[in-house]
């Protein structure tokens, strides 16, 4: 859900490309309500292709399922890909300027220099 909108001349800055070098799985409690509320806010295509790229798409399909509210397995897969998969080392790449934002220890570094503002 991150964008690089803040960079100079970047209009949409979304989606950021992901290069994952090290991935960690962090177990966390599954919360059905939360995931259901979050899905309408996601850009499903982007979410799916990112999940596929890092290899955690599970049973998710390119088209969003119509009655996802009641499909527990589907929600669990979304939860896994969205919350539990944590990119530990890697990079986020802006689609327009190819500016790279490094991820270290699971923290993306979005600091930008003055001349990029």
């Amino acid at each position: 859900m991150l964008t690089s909108r803040c960079l100079k001349g970047v209009v949409t800055g979304y989606p950021l490309g992901i290069v994952a070098k090290e991935i960690k799985i962090q177990e966390s409690e599954f919360n059905k309500d939360f995931i259901t509320r979050l899905i309408p806010k996601l850009d499903w295509n982007v979410f799916w292709s990112t999940a596929k790229q890092i290899g955690y798409e599970g049973s998710l399909t390119q088209q969003i399922i119509a009655d996802y509210e009641n499909n527990e397995n589907f929600l669990k897969d979304v939860h896994h890909a969205l919350v539990e998969v944590d990119i530990f080392e890697g990079e986020l790449i802006c689609p327009e300027t190819n500016r790279k934002f490094p991820i270290t220890d699971g923290i993306p570094n979005m600091l930008i220099k003055d001349n990029e503002l």
């Binding site: 859900m1 991150l2 964008t3 690089s4 909108r5 803040c6 800055g13 979304y14 966390s28 806010k41 850009d43 699971g106 923290i107 993306p108 570094n109 979005m110 600091l111 930008i112 503002l117």
Partner: peptide
Amino acid sequence: EGDLILSDLGNGIPFRPGT
């Protein structure tokens, strides 16, 4: 449990609208 981002608030908040 939360996700962390290293960023300067004065440069803007880099998230999609309505998140």
